[in-house]
């Protein structure tokens, strides 16, 4: 059962990701990306990382992709025209990607420790929001505060960058 769920969600995620790459219209690509993120959140849940899964849907699929769609609508993009497709670029890109995948699978097969199955948790009903919270606030408090400042800076930067010249 677990294996089947894993593969269903994985295949869904990958298919939608491929959709991102291959659709002509940016809006279509964005919607595929949203679906891909939802499937990814499901994968997180299979890994007992509930908090992260929820955060993924909230932040990524909810906020980031909405922002993307706003920008697409703002820029009023049309579908990409068919400029002359450079075969050499596609071949080169394909080679790089293929090389990476080949290297990855080689590594994954050659390390026996990676073939282990999921070990059981000592406490299956773990409250992982609390656990992540405790870790975050006890051991990573300073990075947390800095992240806050980072978000502030990003906000200011965005405001500045999108200002039109005042006449």
């Amino acid at each position: 059962m677990q294996l089947a769920l894993f593969w269903i969600f994985s295949i869904l995620m990958l298919l939608f990701a491929l959709g991102v790459v291959f659709f002509r219209s940016p809006v279509n690509s964005a919607m595929c990306l949203v679906m891909s993120f939802v499937a990814l959140a499901a994968l997180f849940v299979t890994l007992d990382a509930y908090f992260i899964g929820v955060v993924q849907v909230l932040v990524y699929a909810g906020a980031v992709m909405v922002l993307f769609l706003f920008i697409i609508m703002l820029l009023d993009l049309r579908s990409e025209e068919n400029r002359r497709v450079k075969i050499s670029a596609w071949v080169g890109g394909g080679l790089v990607v293929g090389g990476f995948v080949a290297a990855l699978s080689h590594v994954l097969q050659s390390i026996p420790k990676l073939q282990a199955i999921k070990p059981d948790l000592s406490n299956p009903a773990v409250n992982d929001v609390a656990a992540v919270g405790v870790t975050l606030f006890r051991f990573f408090n300073l990075p947390l505060q800095i992240i806050g400042v980072l978000l502030l800076v990003a906000t200011i930067g965005v405001v500045l960058l999108s200002k039109k010249e005042l006449k």
Binding site: G92, L95, V96, G99, F100, A103
Partner: peptide, 9 residues
């Protein structure tokens, strides 16, 4: 990317 893949190999 090509450089990274090469380095990986």
């Amino acid at each position: 990317g090509a450089g990274v893949v090469g380095l990986l190999y």
